[in-house]
Design a protein around this nucleic acid. Structure first.
Lengths: 180, 180
DNA sequence: AATATATGAATGAACG
DNA sequence: CGTTCATTCATATATT
C-alpha cells in the first residue's frame, strides 16, 4: 500500500476550492487508510480460511448484508432491496477495473468480472454492464460545465474542472489505494 | 469532527510542506476511506456471526486495532459537505419556469436558466438540472398518491412490504449487451 | 435536543 | 451511447 494521494495540481487551474493539508495530516490520513487496508486484508484472509471448509455457512455471503445503517429508530424495518447495490468490495473492484482504462468491457470480460464479483455478493452480468455504461456516461458528462470559458489556463489536455461546487464522485483521478 | 483540515500552529506560518488537494481529490479520498470502513464493518460483523457459536467470544481481538481518529461514527466522513440551497428568488424563478410546462429543460435551456439564476446567488447547471429532475419526479409521485385507490380494495395484510416488484438482479433479463 | 419532513444529490436501470 | 426515469441517500429545515 502506500502511495495514495498523488497530487495533480493540474495546470494550476484549480477552480473551486482546495484544501491544504500539512504533512502531519497527510500522514495521519495515509496511516488511516493503511490501517483499513491491512485490517481488510486480514479479515478477508480470515474469511477465506474460515469458509474454506464449510463454505456454505448459512449462505453467509458478505454481499448479502447490505449495510443498512439507516436510522429508523423504530419505524420501518429492513425491506428487501429491489435494485442491485454494489457492495463496497464490488465497488472497489469495479472502480479499479474502470481506472485501468479499457473502456466498456467486452461481453466476455463482463462475464469474467461478474464471476469474480459474485464472490463478494449477488450480482448479474447486467448489473456489471449497466455499471460500466453509467460510469462512462457520467464521467463524460462532466466536461459540460467548463467549456464556454476557455479563457483559463490551458496546461494539459484532459484537465476538467468545474465552476461551482458540483461534487461528483466520478473519478478523474486514477488513484485508488490498492489493497495490497 | 475534523472540521476542515487546515489550521495548525497558530502563528500562521507553516513549517514544512503542505500539499493541496482539490475537492475532487478529497472526495476520492473520503470515498476510499469510507469503502474500507464499510468493508471492515461488514467483515467484523461477519466474523462475529461466524464465531458466535464458538463460545470464545474472543472475536474482539480485532477490536483493538481500529483506531479511528478521523472517522465520524455516523457517516464516514470527516468533512461536511454542503449542499446547494436555492435562494427564495431563485426558487421563485425556477418554480415559474416549471409551471410553464416545458417539462424538458434542454441543455441549452439549463444554461440560460443557470445564467439568469446566478445573478441571484451561487448556482450551477447541475443544480438546475437536479432541481428539475426532482421537481418533476416528485410532482408525479404526488399525484400518484392521491387519485388512485380504485378497485384495489386490497385485502392487503402485508406488513409493510411492498417489496417484491422487480426480482432482483441475477440472471434472467439481459438487454442487448453490445459487444462493442 | 430529538425527531419528522422537505429536498438536493447520487445512481441503478431503462429508453430511443 | 446519450438521455431520462425511479428510487434512495443525506442533509437542511421545521416541528415537538
Amino acid at each position: 500500500l502506500g502511495e495514495s494521494v498523488d497530487e495533480r495540481g493540474g495546470g494550476g487551474e484549480v477552480l473551486g476550492y482546495a484544501r491544504v493539508m500539512t504533512d502531519e495530516q497527510m500522514e495521519v490520513l495515509q496511516k488511516q487508510i493503511s490501517i483499513y487496508a491491512t485490517i481488510c486484508e486480514q479479515l478477508v484472509e480470515m474469511h477465506h480460511a474460515l469458509t474454506a471448509h464449510q463454505d456454505s455457512i448459512a449462505g453467509m455471503r458478505l454481499g448479502n448484508l447490505y449495510c443498512d445503517p439507516l436510522m429508523v429508530p423504530g419505524g420501518h424495518k429492513f425491506t428487501a432491496r429491489q435494485r442491485w447495490t454494489p457492495t463496497p468490495m464490488q465497488l472497489q473492484i469495479l472502480e479499479s477495473i474502470f481506472d485501468q482504462g479499457n473502456g466498456t468491457p467486452s461481453k466476455q470480460k463482463i462475464k469474467d468480472i461478474t464471476a469474480e464479483l459474485s464472490q463478494h455478493g449477488q450480482i448479474s452480468e447486467t448489473n456489471v454492464y449497466n455499471w460500466f455504461q453509467n460510469r462512462r456516461a457520467r464521467s463524460k458528462r462532466k466536461q459540460a460545465a467548463s467549456l464556454p470559458n476557455s479563457a483559463e489556463s490551458e496546461a494539459e489536455a484532459d484537465e476538467e474542472s468545474q465552476t461551482d461546487r458540483k461534487p461528483n464522485s466520478d473519478g478523474p483521478l486514477h488513484q485508488n489505494m490498492a489493497v495490497r
